[in-house]
Write a protein that binds this DNA or RNA. Structure first.
Lengths: 202, 202
DNA sequence: TTGACAACATACCAACCGGTCGGTTTCTGT
DNA sequence: ACAGAAACCGACCGGTTGGTATGTTGTCAA
């Protein structure tokens, strides 16, 4: 006989519902009532686990977004000595996700969305999101260093500024794709990104 | 004796106040009352000139943002045959603006802000903002073609995808600067952008 | 079995939102 | 001079927001 109340699952359900709604409709554009309704719980439950909407947002950043960045970027690049090829493979995988779930075409990147919306409005949000970006850039930077050592990247490449530029290029691309909402544009942008990455090879 | 009522000035005051507040606090984050208060007018006046908040937003895009893109990018690049150097000059000018008015550091790009916020929520917004991006990309694309013809850009460069990537890189950079809020990071990103642009030269 | 606390549920609140509407003031064509 | 239109005012409205107060139900250790 399974228990009626499963606190951990409830909390996780709230987090994932919030993540999904924040992704589709932004943070301020999503009301607590919407989260509660879609998660199939009540306001009492939500405020039992989180002090307020902001705290829920922080938790989404720390737990959900952090894990996504980790899975998609940091882990795959951790042992890479050919980051250009490996990043192209990651992008290929993400491009496939766009084909499978076309609604993502107009949703953008959850990390970028939340950053653009909240970082100038709430300092706690900014600092937590900044940490994720730092982790992401660091992972790319280290892989570039490894790539240089392995002879897979031009020696004169500056790892730090190149890593920042790569992240900027990716986030900017997703933002533009959101506005264009067009698979042909996705292909064009993919070519632009690929050309940039390939220019780093010797 | 100057007239008490100056309709055109009133309308322009509303537009510029709205542009400034949308830039600082986003579209949904700015209330009509805030606009009205800061512009020194009343709600009646605002609704006399614009059917609603969305229509005001459309006008801000069509009149204010369009002019800004035109001034900063399209006009300077129209006659360019060395777009890399000319774009670096534009960026240098914008970087100086950041030093003069540091609050922009956390405000981001008005066009990017509005796009990320509204393009998935209102189709009219998306289409109008998309038009501005197309104009911007077209201007860069054409200047790249001219640069190739003049021998200032590598022949194998694909103008279209490169133009898209440049816009993505710029918008992504401003977005990341907003999160980092740090002049040292601005310098790092500037170096990353410059390296990318310079890689287009023969 | 029972007390204590975590895990929920629900009704309610003040503040704020975009928008309306009837009225007043200023301007302009005749 | 005067009528009618444009410009502008500000009180008001229904709806929504994040958040709270209070009550009920399930769980588990003693």
């Amino acid at each position: 006989m399974s228990p009626v109340r499963t606190p951990e699952e409830t909390r996780m359900m709230i987090l994932e519902t919030a993540l999904d709604l924040f992704h589709r409709s932004s943070f301020t554009g999503t009301s607590i009532n919407q989260i509660v309704d879609k998660a199939g719980i009540t306001k009492g439950a939500l405020f039992h686990y989180f002090k307020g909407k902001n705290e829920l947002g922080y938790a989404v950043v720390e737990e959900c977004l952090k894990r996504q960045i980790q899975e998609h970027w940091i882990t795959p690049l951790a042992t890479s000595v050919d980051p250009v090829s490996d990043m192209l493979a990651i992008l290929e995988k993400m491009s496939q996700m766009l084909v499978d779930e076309p609604h993502i075409l107009e949703c953008g990147c959850p990390l970028n969305n939340l950053s653009q919306e909240m970082s100038s409005r709430d300092e706690t949000f900014r600092l937590r999101l900044l940490e994720l970006y730092r982790d992401w850039e660091d992972a790319i930077e280290k892989s570039i260093r490894a790539g240089i050592d392995a002879g897979n990247i031009k020696e004169e490449t500056d790892p730090q500024s190149t890593a920042s530029a790569i992240v900027a290029l990716l986030e900017g691309s997703i933002g533009l794709i959101k506005v264009n909402k067009d698979m042909a544009y996705v292909a064009r942008m993919g070519q632009g990104i690929a050309n940039f990455l390939l220019s780093l090879k010797p």
